[in-house]
């Protein structure tokens, strides 16, 4: 795949994006940058503002303030076909045929019909759906329909691909296919923004991550950098009997508790375990103390709880 119409290497830059619905801020001063060949992951619980950001990028919504530029061109001046969008809510024309649907979406993104047809067949072949080109959409399984909609989102070879929960509802094989596609996008210099709940995949695929809650950024950066920030304040303790005093400490966040084994993160990011241990009785019952590297999921849970004020 060749990226078209990318004239400079500045990539996609969003600055101070804000969007309110009534008095409620859905997106609150969000900024990010995606360079060509980069994948940016947006992580956050439902209602954190990921979809709103994506809708702003593809011009379905207008931000209340802030700006977006693609290679220094303001978003308002960028043609729609420079973006490929896979919304979280999926759907196609149930009675239409596979190929004609894809050609329709391709032509809506300014592809010549013939080229759209050739590209659609090529992608269908790659995803193992070429024998269904003349089938009606409603004759296909849900998984197949998802793949077709995925193809519809990037058939026109846009420089920016925006995918909202692309792995949702996919089986393991198709997830691998999608990962390969995303890797291909990266190597072709596309800018990919994806929202997902699957932390392990986000960690694996994304160059940069933004963790969000209630429209605000909780943390951002490369996955490794984010994890590094929490690495030395994350501990694992195993004891012979339960440690209720540990759970009652206010300066730690218990991530996991299993058979008198506890995973926790120090809230004030203290790296001195002895300080923590000094606050609990039954210290003699502790068998094992380790510093461990928290997963993105652990960090995510911790940050969300912290941000929401939930213990």
């Amino acid at each position: 795949m060749q990226t078209e119409k990318v004239t400079t290497e500045n990539g996609l830059i969003a600055e101070n994006l804000c969007k309110n619905y009534g008095s409620e801020a859905t997106v609150d001063n969000i900024s990010f940058r995606v360079k060509p060949g980069q994948i940016l992951g947006l992580l956050g619980p439902n209602g954190s503002g990921k979809t709103t950001i994506m809708r702003i990028l593809v011009k379905i919504l207008q931000p209340d303030s802030g700006s977006v530029t693609l290679n220094e061109v303001p978003l308002e001046q960028i043609p729609a076909n420079q973006f490929g969008y896979l919304p979280e809510e999926r759907g196609l024309y149930p009675r239409a045929r596979v190929l004609e649907s894809l050609v329709y979406f391709g032509t809506l993104n300014q592809m010549p019909a013939r080229k759209a047809q050739v590209e659609a067949i090529r992608f269908l072949d790659r995803l193992g759906l070429v024998e269904f080109t003349e089938a009606r959409i409603n004759q296909l399984s849900r998984g197949m329909q998802q793949k077709i909609q995925l193809v519809a989102s990037f058939l026109h070879n846009p420089p920016v691909v925006v995918l909202d929960e692309p792995f949702s509802g996919m089986d393991a094989i198709n997830m691998v296919v999608l990962e390969e596609l995303l890797a291909e996008f990266r190597s072709n210099g596309k800018m990919v923004i994806l929202a997902t709940h699957q932390m392990d995949r986000a960690e694996k695929l994304c160059d940069d991550l933004i963790m969000m809650n209630q429209g605000r950024v909780l943390i951002e950066g490369a996955p490794a950098e984010i994890k590094k920030q929490f690495r030395e304040s994350a501990f694992y303790i195993e004891a012979d009997e339960p440690l209720p005093a540990l759970k009652s400490l206010k300066n730690i966040e218990i991530l996991e508790e299993n058979n008198n084994a506890y995973k926790f993160i120090s809230k004030n990011q203290t790296r001195d375990i002895s300080l923590i241990l000094s606050q609990i009785d039954k210290r003699e019952r502790i068998r094992k103390v380790e510093v461990f590297e928290p997963s993105l999921h652990d960090i995510f849970i911790r940050l969300i709880r912290q941000n929401s004020g939930v213990k």
Binding site: K59, I60, A80, F83, Y85, P87, G91, Y93, A152, S153
Partner: peptide
Amino acid sequence: LLEKSNKILEQLLSSTR
């Protein structure tokens, strides 16, 4: 109604006004 209920609308609106 169809495009609204089967969620195709969002993808269409990303391609055209």
